[in-house]
Amino acid sequence: MSRSTLFTHVTLSAISPRARLTATVAVVGCAFALSGCGTSTSAADTAPAGSGASSTAPAAAAPKAEVTLDSGWVKAGSGMTAAFGTITNHSSVPVTLVKGTSDKAGMVALHTMEKQTDGTMKMTEKKGGFLIPAGGNLSLNPGGDHIMLMEVSGPLANGQKVALNMVATDGTTFAWSVPVRSFAGAQETYAPAVPGMTGMTSTAPAATK
């Protein structure tokens, strides 16, 4: 897939109320289930100044896999935006991230961009989540895999920080403090309302072959 292809998103308001409600409930349910979510605020506050990306091991006492977001950043904006960077798995076991929460967004989703049979790029839910091999990493880039932030509470301004709490299949939560950056790419050209969250249609120009 071309990394340079612009991806497009559907505004949350364009999503049918029912689908939106369902998705929100799912995230809230996750928040209740996972005590690790509570580390987000402190992680943001204690991030070392000047570091491009920082990560914090889960607050839980039990030894768990360490997964960091290196050179991470969130595109400045409001409503809907995305986080990018390199997810690195420092442990000796594979980790699959399946969901997340944020202090600045009502919904966090794991998305990717896929070329469709008609040549257009569409954002879709990353089926099965983000698998990061033991000792390996996964790059999140505009035009590729990314962490979607929806229902962003107020505009995210250049130079601020966002707390992300990403949850693995075993329930382990990884708390990341991610800087917000102005970015002209990752244009969200909002499409008309479409039903459902997955398989959102896109207004991206069809790829040329």
Partner: peptide, 23 residues
């Protein structure tokens, strides 16, 4: 915030790396 952004960007650039958002 301006100085925070520039500090990180300049550190990367001077180390011959692209800043965070550099395509």
């Amino acid at each position: 915030r301006l100085m925070g952004v520039w500090t990180d960007d300049i550190e990367r650039l001077m180390a011959a790396r692209g800043p965070l958002t550099d395509l």
